[in-house]
């Protein structure tokens, strides 16, 4: 396996107030691969994912210890600019959350923040991103329409396009298809597979088929601990830990 880890997390502990939600996670994310995070509800998948772009900073009383490195530099060091970090580490949420503006404005939002005004570049990036997110055909004649007027699945792909438009290096997705029907989910999966040779992706999912279909590596979380991480095939076919095989066989969770 390629040993090009773009993110390395070492002994990450996260506290909500006094409650320790992550008990020392060591997990690396190889470049340009899809890593799936699986595990029962409340096992800390979202918490861990959100610590990778410091979205947990928005919640009061959260403390993080340990180190998370992006390209070798500690993202929790006082010098880190969270705004810059979040441009490099994009995020797609469980609920499709396009802004109540037009599709075009949604997709260009991040670029405009970065000060891009060149109309040609914006147009080009909109088309490119919507195509990558596999939603171009449905939106190309409706770029001026309110993004909320699209279906949930289309909205989620617009959100993916919105993240892609700023060309982050890593994309975090927290159960991006759990609010979608199977057809829309399949389309979102297709778009993830389409972009995976350009982006490093971490995806939380409750759908085991989804994890096995799209991910290269799978990490199994349980009660705030990382139980096991390996190539997806290994995890699903011969897991080393008893808990992993119990979970995959539906014994709990």
């Amino acid at each position: 396996m390629a040993n090009n880890n773009i993110i390395t997390a070492e002994n990450v502990r996260l506290y909500y107030g006094k409650h320790e939600a992550l008990h020392g996670i060591d997990l690396d994310f190889p470049e340009k691969q899809i890593t799936a995070l699986i595990g029962p509800s409340g096992s800390g998948k979202s918490t861990f994912l959100r610590s990778l772009n410091r979205m947990n900073d928005l919640i009061p009383d959260v403390t993080v210890t340990g180190t998370i490195r992006l390209d070798g530099s500690d993202i929790y060091s006082p010098q880190t600019d969270t705004v810059e970090l979040r441009k490099r580490v994009g995020m797609v949420f469980q609920q499709p959350n396009p802004f109540p503006f037009s599709v075009y404005e949604n997709v260009t939002y991040g670029l405009r923040l970065a000060g891009v005004k060149d109309k040609k570049l914006l147009d080009q990036r909109v088309e490119e991103s919507l195509k990558l997110a596999a939603v171009w055909d449905e939106t190309k004649d409706h770029l001026k329409d309110n993004a909320l007027s699209f279906s949930g699945g289309q909205q989620q792909r617009i959100c993916i396009a919105r993240v892609l438009a700023v060309k982050p290096e890593i994309i975090l997705l927290d159960e991006p298809t759990s609010a979608l029907d199977p057809v829309s989910s399949a389309k979102v999966e297709d778009s993830l597979l389409a972009i995976k040779n350009q982006y490093t992706i971490a995806i939380v999912t409750h759908n085991m088929q989804q994890a096995s279909r799209i991910s290269d590596r799978t990490a199994f979380f349980l009660n705030g601990k990382l139980i096991e991480v390996d190539n997806t095939a290994n995890i699903f076919l011969n897991p080393k830990q008893q808990e992993t095989s119990d979970y995959l066989n539906g014994k709990f969770g």
Partner: peptide, 26 residues
């Protein structure tokens, strides 16, 4: 909704940009 704020911040907006580009506008 809170998720507009989250979406904006996650795209690399500052809190101030989020306020005037998303929240006030919405």
């Amino acid at each position: 909704p809170r998720f507009y704020r989250e979406a904006s911040l996650a795209l690399g907006a500052t809190r101030w940009q989020t306020i005037y580009k998303v929240i006030i506008r919405a």
